[in-house]
Design a protein around this nucleic acid. Structure first.
Lengths: 163, 163
DNA sequence: GCAAATTAGTTTGTATGCTAACAATTAATT
DNA sequence: AATTAATTGTTAGCATACAAACTAATTTGC
């Protein structure tokens, strides 16, 4: 989506495809993939990810979401952190596991509720968060760069309605 | 994001978190995850996926993208199909493999260019496409349902600028 | 006070989506 | 003709993301 979609660098067979009746594409179904919100959404997500990983190579978007929430809260249980970052239990577990592996966060069971794992950022985790938070702002800025200031506001308010 | 985020069904520890200096959250970093375009985008994608899989349980969004393109074109090489559906070579391969496994598409090498695999939808693939294409329209409709007609137009045109 | 429902966390399986490296084939250049 | 470059497809590894099935702990409702 973002690169080298230059179209027709191909040399053969890019034609005579609707030649005859080999395809029973009976009567225009007028389904245009390029106009579907899901398809465009996927393209925008791909572009955002590519910007994010260029500006913040140390963390993935979900890892940064979890780390930033945890740094701002100070602590949270694993499921709670998942809810706050819109990740289900299975997803937040993987994210937390990888952050723990890198010792950016720590966990300890809560004595008053043995089901809960209390997560806290380590010193290294807080330092990394403070180091990259300005880049995180830059990610949003660059992602929205094709829009004017007014368009940004309109877009974000409409986008929020679709969650 | 979409469900049961009722907030504060929790009973303990949801407080005294910023109690003191245990967190060196020095000076408001004013990074609000909920306002970042990437975070909202992920939420919208999650909601879209949930709508899609409810209305079209037979296929994933990328599978439907590939199948619909192939049915409309009649045939395409694997890489070509990937470009048309915004998937890189590794991703389109997985999608194609799963569609072939279910015999919704077929492949054969092109004699004039032995690097290429020519993909075509099978009869079952075409039938499935024709069966679900109206649901695919419904997916877009339901996803955009929170917006007025005018807002939909504005939103889609802005979204397209961000690819 | 005890069964039932709820909540927290884990595990498994399936499906994207990315990067990177690779082999085979074909095209372009010298 | 030989080298170089580009394209096609494959494989592997990592990281979301979902559903479903499971254990364990806690809360509830009677």
């Amino acid at each position: 989506m973002s690169k080298s979609q230059s179209k027709s660098l191909k040399t053969v067979d890019e034609d005579h495809r609707h030649s005859d009746s080999e395809v029973s594409n009976l009567g225009k179904d007028h389904y245009l993939l390029e106009d579907q919100v899901g398809f465009i959404l996927r393209g925008v997500s791909q572009r955002h990810l590519s910007i994010f990983s260029r500006l913040i190579p140390e963390l993935t978007p979900t890892q940064f979401s979890a780390l930033s929430k945890l740094c701002q809260l100070g602590q949270a249980s694993q499921n709670e952190l998942g809810r706050l970052t819109a990740m289900d239990a299975a997803t937040i577990k993987g994210v937390v596991d990888r952050l723990k592996l890198r010792e950016l966060i720590s966990s300890e069971p809560l004595s008053s509720d043995l089901r809960r794992l209390i997560l806290k950022p380590t010193s290294a985790g807080q330092q990394l968060y403070l180091k990259v938070v300005s880049s995180a702002h830059a990610v949003t800025k660059e992602t929205l760069e094709p829009l004017s200031d007014k368009e940004k506001d309109v877009f974000l308010s409409l986008l929020k309605k679709l969650i």
